[in-house]
């Protein structure tokens, strides 16, 4: 019973940092998906206005800076003329209609980055019949910078937690090695390989990785089921994620196992070098 409790305690000292890392990774994936979702949503509202001398043909601008052009909407001249109609004669209105350039709004399939936006401006400027381009970069940058900031904070947080988790895992595995040192040496004296003699340590690490995966997956499942309760109503349209949780679970499982296995291999290698070096 004492040995069992000790083993459980040992496993949990491995599970906790792994859970922190997996949760951060889930947050990263979650933010990525929210941003992708949000980008699609705001790309519907966002458009670039271009003014041309001659009518614009959609086939001429299928993509800009690698982003597909979703649609080109013609702004009706009638709407513009309507505003000044009362002060002009019929003839003047006709002439104005003839002389007014063509106004279009370009809608993109995804929300461009700031550099893509600059590239779009350059590509549009190369088209001969375009007189003026308005990309609303100020509004765009405000929204986009906030998104990128969030995304980068999560990436940095994930990198830091990954680093600290790996340090904690390797320390914990080293502690296990010291605890099992006598057993490992006895097994090696009888001709066991390092892999065989460290099988108890490896088993505990893999069990720990699996427990961490189960805990984080359950937490994630709970959060996804209750997104509308956790987040305020204003954010509900953004957080309606269609992402498949199954894929996220697969990522988590492989990350959990691969981090554990890599750390074990690292510690085993170090142990082997120290033993036979």
């Amino acid at each position: 019973m004492v040995l069992f409790m000790k083993s459980v305690k040992n496993i949990f000292s491995f599970v906790i940092p792994l859970c922190v890392m997996l949760i951060t990774f889930s947050m990263y994936i979650f933010t990525e998906e929210i941003i992708a979702n949000y980008k699609t949503q705001i790309s519907d509202d966002y458009s670039i206005v271009v003014i041309t001398n001659t009518p614009l043909i959609k086939d001429d601008i299928n993509s800009l800076a690698g982003i597909n052009v979703k649609k080109i909407v013609t702004l009706e001249k009638e709407e513009i003329i309507k505003k000044v109609k009362d002060s002009l004669s019929e003839n003047s209105i006709f002439l104005l209609k003839q002389r007014l350039p063509f106004f279009y709004t370009l809608h993109l399939e995804t929300f461009p980055t700031s550099s893509q936006l600059e590239q779009i401006r350059k590509e549009l400027a190369k088209i001969p019949n375009i007189n003026k381009i308005e990309i609303f970069s100020k509004d765009h940058n405000k929204i986009f910078s906030l998104l990128i900031l969030n995304q980068n904070i999560i990436i940095v947080f994930f990198a830091i937690s990954l680093l600290f988790s790996i340090i904690l895992f390797s320390k914990q595995i080293q502690i296990w090695f010291y605890e099992h040192q006598e057993k490992i040496s006895i097994m090696q004296l009888h001709g066991a390989s390092i892999l065989y003699s460290a099988s108890a340590v490896i088993r505990d690490a893999l069990i720990g990785a699996f427990i961490a995966f189960l805990m984080v997956s359950s937490l994630l499942l709970f959060l996804f089921e209750n997104l509308t309760i956790i987040f305020p109503p204003e954010l509900h349209s953004i957080i309606q994620l269609e992402a498949s949780l199954n894929i996220e679970f697969v990522y988590l499982f492989f990350l959990s196992m691969s981090i554990s296995i890599t750390t074990i291999i690292g510690v085993l290698f170090k142990y082997k070098i120290r033993k036979y070096g």
Partner: peptide, 13 residues
């Protein structure tokens, strides 16, 4: 290491 393991497997200590 392989030879050592092989020797150790075949002796009793």
């Amino acid at each position: 290491n392989r030879t050592l393991r092989s020797v150790r497997k075949n002796i009793g200590v």
